[in-house]
Computed example of a mutant assay.
Amino acid sequence: MTHIKICGVTDVETATLCARLGADFIGLVFADSRRKVTPEQAMEITHHLLSLPRRPKLAGVFVNAPAYEVNRIAEYCRLDRVQLSGDEDEDYCRRIERPLIRATRVGEDTVIEEIESRISASPSNTLHLLDARSPEGYGGTGRSFDWELLAGLDTALPLVVAGGLSPENVGQLIMRYRPWGVDVSSGVETHGHKDPAKILAFIRAVRDAGARLRGVKNATR
Rank of each mutant, 00 (worst) to 15 (best):
Glu108Tyr: 02
Glu108His: 10
Asp109Gly: 08
Asp109Ala: 12
Asp109Trp: 01
Thr110Val: 05
Thr110Lys: 02
Thr110Tyr: 00
Val111Thr: 14
Val111Cys: 06
Val111Asn: 00
Val111Arg: 03
Ile112Arg: 14
Ile112Trp: 00
Ile112Ala: 14
Ile112Thr: 15
Ile112Gly: 04
Glu113Ser: 13
Glu113Thr: 09
Glu114Pro: 03
Glu114Tyr: 01
Glu114Gly: 03
Ile115Val: 14
Ile115Ser: 00
Ile115Leu: 05
Ile115Asp: 01
Ile115Trp: 03
Ile115Arg: 00
Glu116Asp: 11
Glu116Phe: 00
Glu116Thr: 15
Ser117Cys: 15
Ser117Gly: 07
Ser117Asp: 15
Ser117Met: 10
Arg118Trp: 00
Arg118Lys: 15
Ile119Asn: 11
Ile119Lys: 12
Ile119Thr: 10
Ile119Gln: 07
Ser120Asp: 13
Ser120Gly: 09
Ser120Leu: 13
Ala121Leu: 15
Ala121Glu: 12
Ala121Thr: 11
Ser122Cys: 12
Pro123Gly: 08
Pro123Gln: 08
Pro123Thr: 08
Pro123Ile: 11
Pro123Val: 12
Pro123Asp: 07
Ser124Ala: 14
Asn125Thr: 14
Asn125Trp: 10
Asn125Gly: 07
Thr126Val: 03
Thr126Ala: 05
Thr126His: 04
Leu127Ala: 13
Leu127Ser: 06
Leu127Arg: 10
Leu127Thr: 06
Leu127Pro: 05
His128Gln: 11
His128Val: 14
His128Lys: 10
His128Pro: 06
His128Glu: 12
Leu129Gln: 07
Leu129Trp: 04
Leu129Lys: 08
Leu130Thr: 08
Leu130His: 06
Asp131Tyr: 01
Asp131Glu: 09
Asp131Pro: 03
Asp131Phe: 01
Ala132Gly: 04
Ala132Met: 10
Ala132Arg: 10
Arg133Asn: 11
Arg133Ala: 15
Arg133His: 14
Ser134Thr: 11
Ser134Leu: 01
Pro135Ile: 06
Pro135Val: 06
Pro135Phe: 03
Pro135Cys: 04
Glu136Pro: 05
Glu136Thr: 11
Glu136Val: 07
Glu136Arg: 14
Glu136His: 15
Glu136Cys: 09
Gly137Pro: 03
Gly137Met: 05
Gly137Lys: 01
Tyr138Val: 12
Tyr138Ala: 14
Tyr138Thr: 14
Gly139Pro: 04
Gly139Phe: 00
Gly139Leu: 03
Gly139Ile: 02
Gly140Thr: 01
Gly140Pro: 04
Thr141Trp: 01
Thr141Phe: 02
Thr141Lys: 04
Thr141Leu: 09
Gly142Cys: 09
Gly142Met: 03
Gly142Lys: 08
Gly142Asn: 03
Arg143Glu: 13
Arg143Trp: 01
Arg143Ala: 11
Arg143Ile: 01
Arg143Tyr: 01
Ser144Asn: 12
Ser144Pro: 10
Phe145Lys: 07
Phe145Ser: 09
Phe145Ile: 12
Asp146Glu: 12
Asp146Gly: 02
Asp146Ala: 09
Asp146Lys: 10
Asp146Asn: 15
Asp146Met: 03
Trp147Val: 06
Trp147Pro: 09
Trp147Asp: 13
Glu148His: 12
Glu148Trp: 00
Leu149Gly: 04
Leu149Ser: 04
Leu149His: 05
Leu149Thr: 00
Leu150Asn: 11
Leu150Asp: 10
Leu150Thr: 11
Ala151Leu: 03
Gly152Ser: 13
Leu153Asp: 03
Leu153Met: 14
Leu153Ile: 12
Leu153Asn: 10
Asp154Thr: 10
